[in-house]
Nucleic acid binder design. Structure first.
Lengths: 238, 238
DNA sequence: CGCTGTATGGCATTCAGTGCCAGAATAGAG
DNA sequence: CTCTATTCTGGCACTGAATGCCATACAGCG
């Protein structure tokens, strides 16, 4: 689709304006209703012609998901460039996606409300997560022999996306709640724990990696006692 | 009253005709192309009026996926009636879905080709599998405490669906190949092996079961900070 | 200045999808 | 069998998404 340098300069200007259009559209969708809002209406309130709206976004739905598409491109490029082992890469990619949502609640939160209310939009949202899932399993497959994604790769990608979406939905319902990232990391950790034996040894054992702490304890244990034991366990292993 | 008998007689006739319409539409889609085929065209070749097509199917896409929707209803009703433990039930439900495809290659195979070629249709197909996934995790949640589906339930449902789709795609690419059901059962077995410790583990006993704490943290994190996070995590879950 | 490539806007058209209404088919009651 | 209520169907008109075509405005380059 043409040279990159030109695109960057031009695209920069375009994107600023594009974001304004998206925000205006989101406002119209929530205030007037999605179905009731016409592309002609968006054109009128934004000053951009109806025809140009279709040229930029492709469709009415794509106005809502334009930012999402950009994010997807970013994530794919990140995975291609990442030198880490594939499982670490896709987990980081999932974190990137999550960040893409959390960073931009002005769009993602009202969009979530719209998505919940309209089947068509819900399908579109689901299709996006499916694209991520496909990209993830594809990445896992490429760095584990190439060819078509294996059963394991697809299952791990699906589990990862499901965990991501689980935490994400919680945040979308209550964007003000604290400790999102802790919840996210815990969810990722659990999927890793599940995926590890199935997929491959997730750890290389270098110095800079994440560490995993797993504690199994009877439900009757006191909070203080539990923390004391965890502390000593951490001390033992450095 | 009489709604069942009436419906059965009437519905039976309708469905026979409906199936013919779907088959004719599939033929048109594959021969003339999906976009090039208009609802007016389908109406002409089937003898059913354009208006009635929209009434029966709702949309052009829904002509292709009409059978699929019926299958979904069947699967949901099966799960509601099943007395087996939830994990067994959803696995059986997945088998039911798989059977729904394999039993009717006349529609599912050409549909698969169409789905691969057109983004819109692909989204629709993906939305269907997402509906199954939601139904599965919902079933797992209902029979494990009720309320909103837990992370585990969603991850297991996603993994199950992913495995199902993996085997299904293999069959769709080559419907004549032998040993589909063996492949299906093996895939299900692997997911169960993976899901077992994650899903059934925490659900084992009454009040006395073990709890699992998983923490993932960068190796550079301070001891005190780590313990603080662990403490808050423990507090959140009780 | 002219030339070329590109983004935009206006116009017309196709087609999916919906509301409205009239007519046909059918079930049920007498 | 007849009358009636309900339901299914088809025709008609309309909205709006989406696309193609063409003219215009604006950039860079000689």
């Amino acid at each position: 689709m043409g040279s990159n340098g030109e695109r960057a300069a031009r695209g920069g200007q375009q994107r600023a304006e594009t974001r304004e259009v998206v925000l205006a559209a989101v406002r119209l969708f929530t205030e007037e209703g999605y179905e009731a809002t016409t592309m002609a209406g968006i054109a009128e309130t934004t000053g951009v012609s109806r025809r140009s709206l279709f040229r930029r976004f492709g469709s009415k739905e794509d106005v809502l998901f334009a930012e999402h598409d950009e994010l997807f491109e970013t994530v794919v490029r990140y995975m291609e460039a990442s030198p880490e082992p594939p499982l670490d890469t896709v987990v980081s990619a999932a974190r990137l996606v999550f960040q893409g949502y959390v960073r931009d609640p002005e769009i993602t939160v009202p969009r979530y409300r719209l998505v919940r209310a309209h089947d068509r939009l819900r399908d579109r949202e689901v299709a996006m997560t499916a694209r991520y899932q496909a990209a993830f399993s594809h990445h896992l497959a490429e760095h584990a022999g190439g060819g078509r994604p294996s059963l394991e790769a697809e299952v791990v990608a699906a589990a990862l996306i499901a965990a991501h979406n689980h935490v994400l939905r919680g945040w979308l319902r209550d964007p003000e709640a604290e400790g999102i990232w802790e919840r996210f990391d815990r969810a990722m950790g659990r999927v890793r724990a599940m995926a590890g034996p199935l997929f491959e040894g997730p750890r290389g054992g270098e110095g800079r990696e994440d560490r995993v702490l797993v504690a199994v304890y009877p439900s009757g244990v006191e909070r203080a006692e539990l923390l004391r034991r965890v502390a000593s366990a951490v001390d033992e292993r450095g």
